Simulated scan of single mutants.
Amino acid sequence: LRDLLSQIGDPDAAHDAGVIDDDEYVERKARKLAYTSALAAYANGEVPDLPALLEQMREQASQPTQTETNTANIDYLLMTVGGDQ
């Protein structure tokens, strides 16, 4: 898992640079989260269900971040109220 985790790199930077599309971003982000969680579980002597963990992280990674939500809210306010006031 450590090798796989190191191969993923930084999905956020790759997405911001336009190297990967949205679908690939979600998949890489989900794998990074799942592998990190699995490594922590193994360190605690637990054996995680990796496929279930990966599916859970895919769902989490596909949700908008707090920054994206805030930006969308600000954009909406500026559009409805007006930004020149």
Rank of each mutant, 00 (worst) to 15 (best):
V19P: 02
D12W: 03
N70F: 13
R2C: 02
G45R: 03
D75Q: 06
T71N: 07
M79N: 12
Y42D: 11
I8H: 08
N70C: 05
A14S: 09
A17L: 09
L78E: 02
T71K: 02
R31N: 04
D75L: 10
L54K: 04
L77M: 05
R28M: 15
A41T: 01
R28D: 15
P64S: 03
P48T: 05
D84A: 13
Q60A: 15
G18D: 08
I20V: 11
M57D: 08
D10Q: 04
V26A: 13
L5W: 03
A34Q: 00
L54I: 07
D21Q: 11
P48Q: 06
A17V: 02
E68W: 08
I74C: 04
L77K: 04
A17W: 00
G45Y: 05
I8N: 01
T80P: 00
Q85G: 13
Y76L: 14
M57K: 09
Q60Y: 07
E68P: 02
S62Y: 00
Q56A: 15
I74F: 15
A41K: 10
K32R: 15
A41R: 11
L77A: 15
A72T: 01
V26T: 09
D10C: 09
L5F: 04
E46W: 05
E55N: 10
D22R: 15
A34D: 09
D12A: 06
T65C: 10
D75I: 02
D10P: 02
I8L: 06
T67S: 14
A34M: 06
L33E: 14
Q7H: 12
V19F: 07
E24N: 10
Q60K: 11
A43P: 01
L39D: 07
Q63E: 13
G9P: 01
D22F: 15
Y25T: 07
A13S: 11
A13R: 10
G82C: 02
G9R: 02
I20G: 08
A40L: 11
L4T: 03
G45I: 09
A40E: 12
